[in-house]
């Protein structure tokens, strides 16, 4: 475990906590895409099936349980909690997220390291995670008033991806045979999707103005 990965994991954890804080404490999910949250729940459910087959560390298992638990509880909150559900921007959150799931599944069936059930699902989760933020980015673009917590949530998620790239560069130079093209390319695609958001986020921060994405 290097400092970049630990920082990346902590940033990821912070993003989830920010979102839970907004939903649990303020009882609002305004500006949060349920489509993206559903995709993350699928991502973690398919990637972390190895909880049952392999053990890496207590840290690894605990974090997996945290991300599984938080992603499913966010989805349940948004769908079934009366007050939270009322604040959901249903009319704006119209991205056809199932159109992302099928191509990712097909791609995982075609491009993978090993053709086994767990390996294909693991690869599918990598491809799906890369594009899972898209419904959220579209919703942000449509939302007139992006509140601070929603902006911070997306900023932290993007930061987590950026730190993972630094982690891979570090591991490539320090660990022999650390080459993982599928992980790297999907991770790079995922990080690039945030580039636009990062630009406007830094602008709003610099000018001390409310974050607003151009249509």
């Amino acid at each position: 475990m290097n400092i970049f990965r630990l920082a990346g994991d902590m940033t990821h954890l912070a993003s989830v906590l920010v979102l839970l804080l907004k939903i649990h404490t303020i009882k609002s999910c305004a500006g949060v895409s349920l489509k993206t949250q559903e995709l993350y729940a699928i991502v973690f459910a398919t990637r972390y099936l190895d909880i049952f087959t392999s053990f890496y560390s207590i840290y690894n298992t605990l974090m997996k349980l945290v991300f599984l638990g938080s992603s499913f509880s966010i989805v349940l909150y948004m769908k079934y909690h009366k007050t939270v559900h009322r604040s959901y921007d249903r009319e704006q959150d119209t991205f056809r997220h199932w159109f992302l799931v099928l191509p990712c599944l097909l791609l995982a069936l075609l491009i993978h390291e090993k053709f086994t059930f767990l390996e294909v699902l693991w690869t599918f989760s990598l491809y799906l995670e890369a594009v899972a933020i898209l419904p959220q980015l579209v919703l942000l673009q449509r939302t007139r008033n992006i509140d601070n917590l929603t902006g911070q949530y997306v900023f932290l998620l993007g930061g987590y991806r950026g730190l993972y790239i630094l982690n891979w560069i570090y591991r490539y130079f320090t660990e022999p045979h650390f080459v993982h093209w599928i992980t790297w390319i999907s991770g790079l695609v995922q990080t690039l999707l945030y580039a636009d958001f990062f630009f406007y986020y830094s602008q709003s921060w610099k000018n001390n103005k409310k974050l607003q994405l151009p249509a």
């Binding site: 392999s54 560390s57 690894n60 974090m63 997996k64 993972y164 982690n167 650390f178 993982h180 992980t183």
Partner: peptide, 10 residues
């Protein structure tokens, strides 16, 4: 092995 190394990540 090398593919195990990627799966120790989250």
């Amino acid at each position: 092995s090398s593919d195990e190394a990627a799966k120790d990540e989250l």
